[in-house]
């Protein structure tokens, strides 16, 4: 994927660019708002990682508003030290697709930006999700694995749906908390781990090949083969 990083802090930018390249992405970097806007408007990217406070007269929100004003719908993840609830709301209102506050864990940034870039390539409404021998029907709300019906609680169903929609991607605990429970705070205790282990009991335990994998220091991933 082609990802544009607009960030003026040398250390943070270097770290992010290196990390994204290691994950197999093609990365462009701009260290000020003007260059960032030029690159974003003139070249095709799959996602933009955008700092808010930038030198060069154009700050992150101005850049974003200008892009959206030009009907550019490229997915944008705002990466900012401004952590107040109101600031987050402002960022999302200006056209941001996701908002991550500094300091951040790279795994979280990578998971979110990959999820965003893939969402950008929406293949229209889906009624059925399939990963290996696991099937989830969104209309009849039935889950089957190897042809056998699995009974799930409504919340377990939504958790599995989220994991399957992001199959092959790392999904962090905060992404699950926001995406499945619509909670925007850190519950401190390991509630998400417990919910996921519940789901594993039903979806993975009775079968020879596990589908839900724990990614160390990051979160979870649902994928067909174990690696």
């Amino acid at each position: 994927m082609r990802i544009l990083v607009v960030e003026d802090d040398k250390d943070v930018a270097g770290f992010v660019v290196r990390g994204l390249r290691e994950a197999g992405h093609v990365v462009e970097h701009a260290d000020n708002g003007r260059d960032g806007l030029f690159l974003a408007a003139s070249e095709a990217f799959d996602a933009v990682i955008l700092d808010r406070m930038l030198p060069g007269g154009i700050d992150g929100l101005r850049l974003l508003e200008t892009l959206r004003g030009q009907k550019n719908t490229i997915p944008v993840l705002i990466l900012s030290a401004l952590a107040e609830v109101d600031e987050r709301v402002r960022g999302l209102k200006s056209g941001g697709d996701d908002y991550l506050t500094k300091p951040f864990a790279f795994a979280e940034l990578l998971a979110r930006v990959e999820a965003l870039a893939r969402r950008g390539k929406g293949e229209g409404p889906v009624t059925k999700l399939t990963v290996a021998d696991l099937e989830l029907d969104l209309l009849s709300r039935l889950v089957r694995r190897a042809g056998q019906k699995i009974d799930l609680q409504p919340r377990e169903f939504r958790l599995l749906e989220y994991l399957m929609r992001h199959a092959g991607q790392v999904v962090t605990r905060t992404m699950l908390l926001e995406g499945v429970w619509d909670y925007h705070f850190d519950p401190q205790t390991n509630v998400i781990d417990v919910h996921v282990s519940r789901l594993r009991q039903k979806v993975d335990k009775p079968y020879p090949v596990p589908l839900i994998h724990t990614v160390r220091n990051a979160g979870y991933m649902l994928r067909p083969e174990s690696a």
């Binding site: 919340r155 429970w181 909670y183 519950p187 205790t189 390991n190 509630v191 417990v194 919910h195 519940r198």
Partner: peptide
């Protein structure tokens, strides 16, 4: 209910 649902597994 949502909070109870989140915490009951814990």
């Amino acid at each position: 209910d949502a909070i109870a649902e989140l915490y009951d597994v814990v």
